[in-house]
Design a protein around this nucleic acid. Sequence first.
DNA 1: CGTGGCCTTGAAGAATCTCAAATAATGTGG
DNA 2: CCACATTATTTGAGATTCTTCAAGGCCACG
Lengths: 258, 258
Amino acid sequence: MSFATIAPITLQPLPSRTRELAVAPLKTVCSSCHLRDLCLPCGLTGDETESLDRLKFGRRKIAAGQTLYRAGARFEFVYAVRSGTFKSSLLLAGGREQVSGFHMAGELMGLDGVANGVHASSATALEDTEVCAIHYGNLSELAAQSGNLQMVLARLMSREIVREHSLMMLLGSMNAEERLAAFLLNLSQRLKARGYSPSEFHLRMSRAEIGSYLGMKLETVSRTFSAFQQQRLLDVDKKHVRIIDIDGLTRAFEARVH
Amino acid sequence: MSFATIAPITLQPLPSRTRELAVAPLKTVCSSCHLRDLCLPCGLTGDETESLDRLKFGRRKIAAGQTLYRAGARFEFVYAVRSGTFKSSLLLAGGREQVSGFHMAGELMGLDGVANGVHASSATALEDTEVCAIHYGNLSELAAQSGNLQMVLARLMSREIVREHSLMMLLGSMNAEERLAAFLLNLSQRLKARGYSPSEFHLRMSRAEIGSYLGMKLETVSRTFSAFQQQRLLDVDKKHVRIIDIDGLTRAFEARVH
DNA sequence: CGTGGCCTTGAAGAATCTCAAATAATGTGG
DNA sequence: CCACATTATTTGAGATTCTTCAAGGCCACG
């Protein structure tokens, strides 16, 4: 849904080798991207953003259910989501998976691979998606020349750390209702930042995936949705959610009081 | 305990302004630090490590129970633990705290402040400690000149992300015994890497702090310790732990099978 | 129109939490 | 140096939350 593609795309599984022929209007560049304020260029000056354009990102489409990269694979690219939704997950002993995050347009994936040169998690498309593949080596080379880009990169990584902090807090100290409320409010916020309705949306992930992410069983997720519906906080119908009482939901989330 | 101080130390609450007078043998430099293989210089060449020496770290002692920085305070320094143990924590609504990590010699604290220029968590000394205060602005300036240092920094941040990934996995999918086993094994490993006994050590943190970190109540931590003792996996006496059967403990941790 | 996947709901069971009390360890002030 | 206050830990018993197991409904798809 909402494939705001700017131009026809050719599949480019690896870094683009297309030398710019003529005035190719199809190139993927940051400076004219509609996501530039959410994505990598956020906080850069116009000039610096244009320097990003030199990186010539490869663009890839990933169909629903396909994986973009797997844990253990060599780390070479970070990926910026152009459209659609991804989940990140780790594989646990026993074949089960632990979902560690959901990613939407403008968000960067794969930074956990920098640590060891190997992806620490897998990324799977939850719907048909499109990403920019950014060669990390080239990116950090460019960063070495631009102090500002270096800073932006450092901030993005740090933000990831902070994000996980709050998730830990969630997992470490909240009950089922608080967890689901926090999840929905976070989703709502991010959708709003992208110009979508913050109060009515489609969940791209299954109950089991939400449960894995929030540290609860899928049945508990389902029951908690039903409970919220009975409390008239929201309407749920399968994957369709409409938040009726955002303040009430916020209170449910803040029920961290004694 | 084990304050392996190399030289007398003067308290330096803020970045050192001491110009090197004569051949001051007291300066804190990375190149001759006994922690250099665990800490920031890990992975750098000798030359690069010496370039770190130019940063002239301030050195600070923090007494047990004192905080090094608080969540919300302006972010200016990252800190390398020289000796002793810290906890990082977030303050939750209702005045309770969520412990998000424990840090020992050679580990870097404060990188979560890069995201917003403000510390996202607080750091509190669990015993008398000593740290190097590293001015982040200077550090990243230096990194801009040395591609390798830039890489090391990026790796350190990424490692933090990976660390939190596995903590999420722990919180999201393990029961009390698995959590405590994972915690003890991790501690054991880190102590070993620092030349201490991996099988016998003093816990620097309280049951409540362990519980907060692992997402369980202090009574459950205590009961789980007792359970391990009954299973003859370890001996516990208050804060003193002796691991008897590390394989058994590892199995308890891997009990993630169906 | 049948099949499989996903979701919901119920009921029983298990794990963890809460409350409570006893003990041990630690620090304080006289 | 002792009596007392305070804090940390352990353990028990009952309450609560969440999970497990099971069954049934809905929907998309072939």
